[in-house]
Amino acid sequence: MGDLEPTDPSPETPAELPEGITLEDAERITQLAEEDRRPSTRRVYRSKWSLFASWCEKRGADPLPASEELLSAYLAERAEEVSLSTIRQDVAAVKWMHERHGLESPTEGSGIGRVLDGIAQTSDPTGGRGKKQAALTEHIRKMVEALPLEAPAPDEGVAAEARHLRALRDRAILLVGYAGAFRRSELAAIRSEDVSRGAKGMEIHVPETKTDPRTVGITYAEDASLCPVRALGEWTGAAGIEEGPIFRAVPRSAKIATGEEAEPITGKTVRNVIGDAAEDAGLDPERMAGHSLRRGHITQGALQGAGLDRLMKQAGHADPRTTAEYVEDARRMETTTAQDLGL
């Protein structure tokens, strides 16, 4: 399972050597086989393999040998966090470990190739990490300001009421998702019982996560118009939500489902909310999606000087290098040595 040690298994010297092969030949072959990759490459592969094995363990699946479907699911999740080049390293590591154990690799099937092609097609064409652009605070402000938040007059009818409720919900989605650095699936799944409020803000428990369950703290914002705590309270108050899913569909009738009929929105709805708000704000909706809030939090936090350990904890990243890549992206123009060339 996931605790499998990512060692370098070596081909064993056969009990009976093939005709014409001496024991010295076999030992030399074995030694060369052990050096099939540079030490630095083997370290990277072991690290990538360890992440995959841990993910499989949480799924109750055996990583060695892994099925093509299992690896495809892993890569699809990883594509929400890391670049295409990192995904390709993941694939290479899985292939290497299977080959070292003399097992058929799941990477040989055509399915993995199609998954990689799909990730390439949906990746950021500018070459940035992940799929979409980071939504920074300046973008969030524009998106919130573009929402029709003004309360309708009593004589404007049900359609206006539904539009207003939807705007309250969407503002809460944007601000809570951004402040909490949530994955879109985590954001969509938040329930009333997961939220606890206090003097400094609120804590949201995240039971469904790709790593371990975590609790995220969100403080009150100085700017009331951009405060995630107040925004969530206004939405749940207007919608009459006291238990069950926090974020629900807003039908044209403006009658939001309650009780056992209440269903949470999906990650697709989160994506659509962000894309629509970006378009209304004059931003490129093709580059803003569900991951933009999460990536934006880490990027903006890094720009503001938040430490790697705090950002990693907020995002719930299992590997600090994933968080470090975001930070590196955010500070690239500060750390580039092009400024030291005297040009």
Rank of each mutant, 00 (worst) to 15 (best):
C56T: 06
L51S: 13
E57R: 14
L51Q: 14
T41R: 02
Y45M: 05
V44G: 12
Y74V: 04
C56D: 02
L70M: 13
A66L: 09
L51K: 08
V44H: 04
A66C: 06
Q31T: 14
V44E: 11
D62P: 03
P63M: 00
E69L: 08
S50W: 02
A53D: 01
E35P: 02
E68I: 03
S72G: 09
K58V: 12
S40K: 07
Y74S: 06
S50N: 10
R46Q: 15
P65V: 04
R28D: 14
A66Y: 03
L32S: 14
A61N: 06
A61G: 03
K58H: 14
L70E: 10
R38Q: 14
C56E: 06
R43P: 06
E69W: 04
P39M: 08
W55C: 07
E34Q: 15
A53V: 04
W55E: 06
R59H: 12
A76K: 12
A73T: 02
W49A: 01
A61H: 12
S47N: 11
R28Y: 11
T41H: 09
P63T: 01
L64V: 13
E35D: 14
R37I: 06
W55P: 08
A73N: 07
S54N: 11
R38A: 15
E68C: 04
G60S: 07
E77Y: 03
R59P: 02
R43I: 09
E68V: 11
F52L: 03
L75V: 08
E77I: 09
D62T: 06
S67G: 13
A76L: 13
L32I: 13
E35A: 15
A76F: 07
E77S: 13
A61Y: 08
Q31C: 06
R37G: 01
V44I: 09
L71E: 02
E68S: 13
A61E: 15
P63C: 01
R46Y: 07
R37M: 04
R28Q: 14
S50H: 10
L32D: 14
K48Y: 10
K48V: 07
L51V: 10
R37H: 08
A61F: 07
T30S: 15
C56W: 01
P65F: 03
S54F: 04
D36Y: 03
K48W: 03
W49C: 00
W49K: 00
L75H: 06
F52Q: 03
Y45W: 07
S47I: 00
R28E: 15
T41L: 05
T41S: 13
K48F: 10
L32W: 12
A76Q: 09
